[in-house]
Amino acid sequence: MKHLLSTRDLDRATAISILDVALDMAALGTRDVKKLPALRGKTIVNLFYEDSTRTRISFEAAEKRLSADVINFSAKGSSVSKGESLKDTAQTLDAMGIDAVVVRHSSSGAPHLLAHSGWLDVPIVNAGDGTHEHPTQALLDAFTLRESMFDDDARGKGLDGLNIVIVGDILHSRVARSNIWLLATLGANVTVVAPPTLTPPGIETWPVRLSHSLDDALEAAPDAVMMLRIQSERMKAAFFPNAREYAKFWGLTAARYRKLGESTIIMHPGPMNRGLEISGEAADSPQSVILKQVTNGVFVRMAVLFTVLTGAKGDVHE
């Protein structure tokens, strides 16, 4: 695997292999020395055109634990704000001899362009592009699901037969897209719940079941419910009447949480709008794995960086 651009082009064996490597990375958390020398001498650029402190920090922690040299490049205070094109920036980084780029961009497809335009020839990791994909988030969600379901027995496993409900702004969510493809590849049954205004056209061709009733979807006692963040700019664009109504129909309210069985875990990619898509009671509940998702993010990103940056031929050696 040279790049990680999307979960749609990730095959099952590669996905499971990344999750298994992440398991070994997780073991590192219990040691005194939380650092591995695998990427010593490699320079990784975190190219962030969009503010995202939590994702950047997660990648940075992953890079540092693998002993890579890290350069943070954010659109603010760089030549990007002076109007330098993505192409010029990419060619500049290439000329500096860097080894990999982790890119977050508000334009869908920007990582794809970096990987395939010929502007630079290094592994590209997509850290979220527009409303397209956020593959490392989906991998860490899958890792967290596997851990929650199988505990110490997770190694080598997919998510076959698990029932996962994804709720919210599917239309604009890169997290939802990446999760839908990856969960399907790993064998889970995915139900998406969204108002019709926030449902992507053509979703009937996707490997999901669509529902417009959160109560119906939760009635079926799924293994996990994944709440998506509602962006504030959607409030003004008539996708739904107002925040109160969104919470009432599409939010994991305290009442809905209380009806939920203990076997359903609660996920959220963060940052949360408490009281909007998720109530505080649900977010802080025993079956919430929201903080575990954050923890696992570092391990999964270590596994991804290790996978794209090592190896001469890009295939997995057993």
């Binding site: 749609r8 869908s108 497809g109 592009d129 527009g130 409303t131 397209h132 994909e133 239309l171 890169r174 897209r177 992507p200 056209p201 053509g202 979703i203 061709t205 996707w206």
Partner: peptide, 15 residues
């Protein structure tokens, strides 16, 4: 064009 492809690519649709 608004459709399955635009949804998948995360590009705003022109219906």
């Amino acid at each position: 064009n608004e459709g399955e492809v635009s949804s998948r690519l995360g590009l705003n649709g022109w219906p």
